[in-house]
Write a protein that binds this DNA or RNA. Structure first.
Lengths: 130, 130
DNA sequence: CGTTACATTTACGTTAACGTCAAGCACTCT
DNA sequence: AGAGTGCTTGACGTTAACGTAAATGTAACG
């Protein structure tokens, strides 16, 4: 539990990202790897954050959006006003995501309809081709 | 049913986009407005396509991805091989979207857990502040 | 007929999220 | 010591999806 530290290469292999990406995320204050002299050592916390970063990206959130949500996951509880603001921000995000899911369901249904039409058409084309 | 044509401004107001965006989509062959002399006139078909474009964007699809799916919606059925390829492409897209929905459900659940924790924390902070 | 109000094309600018060198440390192996 | 490997920090390049500005056109209004 103490030294589960990973080099940049181990991180890249685990998460399928490039070193450039990890350094970029550090520059943007999304990750905070320790240093062994000059080299980066990524902690368990960094890995947890990276998991969330990559998920967020798959939903089209910007890195800046993601950074704000990440701060929700590791607030220390020392600041009252800040906590409330973060809470409200997270609630908005949740609403966005639920709206997105609703739309996604709709789009999937429509696409399925289209697919059935396409299937029928292809079948009829097959028959027409003897 | 014959002349439900819209000017660029009417389009912008209806869909909340800028003229630049509509011209850009035309340049990228996502829309095909008619011309009245020099001016664009957008058809019902253009509006249908724009609706799908904007939805696609909300899911983080690129315009190029969207263009390919759009072609599914108005193929004429004249090309067999092309239709099959398009059909397969749409199926892949559908699989992607369903995977995305599964992830989205998971993320929403996690975020809700975080929110409850935040709520509890805020409540306890309130009590501590008399 | 002047001007006001949009429209058009052309073209350069911008932001996000990295990619891609280049040049130099740090460690290891031989 | 030399060679190789992997890490580091710049710094400039790239792509997508438009923004923005300049110059011009044109339709309608008073």
């Amino acid at each position: 539990m103490t030294d589960d530290l990973m080099t940049i290469r181990q991180m890249c292999d685990s998460f399928d990202v490039t070193p450039r990406t990890l350094r970029f995320y550090e520059a943007k204050e999304l990750l905070f790897p320790q240093r062994d002299g000059t080299r980066r050592l990524f902690t368990r916390r960094d890995r947890a954050r990276l998991t969330l970063i990559l998920r967020g990206k798959r939903f089209g959130f910007s890195l800046e959006d993601i950074r704000q949500v990440l701060d929700l996951y590791d607030r220390d509880g020392s600041n009252h006003a800040q906590a409330i603001r973060t809470y409200e921000l997270a609630q908005q995000r949740l609403a966005q995501m639920e709206a997105q899911r609703a739309e996604l369901d709709e789009a999937i249904a429509e696409l399925k309809t289209e697919l059935d039409a396409g299937k029928a058409m292809i079948a009829s084309l097959r028959r027409a081709a003897e």
